[in-house]
């Protein structure tokens, strides 16, 4: 068995066991309704986590995404309120802005040889500030296209569950991320950067272009996540999704991707997102637990995965020593 895939198997196993426990306690949790809600409620997180996975696989980090989501929501709401543009045109404009924003951060990271942490931290403040510049209030989105098409589009699954549009967008994002990471030359270059920038350069990776593309992709996904979030909440609020970048990083790590880069799977991130959603759903079902338990369980899971990865690393080294 492939040792690098072990964290992924562990993630899947933990998710299934957790679901089993939930099911034993609340049989109603095994229904398409719950699954449908799980996808809908975590759609924005799943979308942005796909971008984050690519960034982390390359050995980087993107702290700006939470603010970019908030900016996106405000941007959409204000544009729809103040201009007569159709939402689809606003979406295109927004995605162009966030993608360019990500690309610019990638350019700075490469061009100035700055740590991604610092550059995207600056990006985080900038995007949040830009959101405040547009408005300091929560702006409701009032557009027939939103009300009648985007928020109302769903497929009724057997059992009555709703597979909503934004749930589908997330699943498509994951599928797209998987293709990008595992089936393209760009994806291999991302893994190569995560494995070692110097070596990647020697092997012919265009480091600068790849870095710009990676952060542009993360910006694109953050913008898409912002659209999804605006459909989900029906408003734009500059104080929304504070700390979402950290939640996204947590789901990526719980999904089995190594924080130092170079190893992991996009699919694992989906499982990580679902695991988080499951914990929240359990708390809702239970009714007596405080929502802070989500944070505690996530904290414990993160710790577990960090230990697991470290353990695998040591185990792998021992194995090789024996083989050699």
């Amino acid at each position: 068995m492939n040792a690098r895939a072990l964290p992924l198997y562990a993630t899947i196993a933990i998710f299934l066991i957790a679901y089993l426990i939930c099911y034993i306690q609340f049989p109603a949790m095994l229904s398409t309704r719950v699954i449908g809600n799980l996808l809908t409620d975590n759609a924005y997180l799943g979308v942005v986590a796909v971008g984050m996975t690519i960034v982390i696989l390359s050995g980087g980090i993107d702290l700006s995404v939470g603010s970019v989501i908030a900016f996106s929501g405000v941007f959409i709401a204000v544009m729809l309120r103040d201009t007569g543009l159709h939402p689809l045109i606003v979406f295109v404009l927004l995605l162009a802005v966030t993608t360019a924003f990500g690309a610019a951060m990638g350019g700075l990271i490469h061009g100035l040889a700055m740590p991604p942490f610092i550059v995207t931290l600056a990006g985080m403040f900038l995007a949040r500030g830009a959101a405040y510049m547009l408005t300091i209030d929560s702006v409701p989105i009032d557009h027939t296209f939103y009300d009648d098409v985007l928020q109302d589009a769903y497929y009724r699954m057997p059992g009555g569950g709703r597979l909503t549009l934004i749930g589908v967008v997330m699943l498509l994002s994951v599928a797209g991320g998987m293709t990008l990471a595992h089936r393209t030359r760009f994806g291999t270059a991302v893994y190569a950067l995560g494995g070692g920038q110097q070596t990647a350069r020697l092997m012919g990776v265009a480091v600068g272009r790849t870095t710009v593309l990676i952060y542009a992709f993360s910006g694109l996904m953050a913008g898409l996540s912002g659209i999804v979030f605006s459909i989900y909440t029906g408003s734009g609020y500059p104080l929304a999704t504070v700390g979402t970048e950290l939640t996204a990083i947590a789901t990526v790590v719980i999904g089995g991707t190594i924080l130092t880069g170079g190893a992991g799977y996009v699919f694992g991130t989906l499982v990580g997102v679902m695991t988080m959603g499951l914990i929240q759903t359990y708390i809702v079902f239970d009714g007596s637990l405080s929502s802070w338990w989500t944070k505690i369980v996530i904290g414990l899971l993160l710790l577990l995965f960090i230990l697991l990865q470290k353990g695998l690393l040591i185990f792998g080294r021992k194995q090789r020593d024996i083989a050699a």
Binding site: T184, R185, G195, A263
Partner: peptide, 19 residues
């Protein structure tokens, strides 16, 4: 100067992977 986190095949064909 190869990448330990990529497969042997990816390392061998890197930059010229058949698509």
């Amino acid at each position: 100067n190869l990448l330990p986190n990529l497969t042997v095949a990816e390392n061998l064909t890197f930059g010229r992977q058949p698509t």
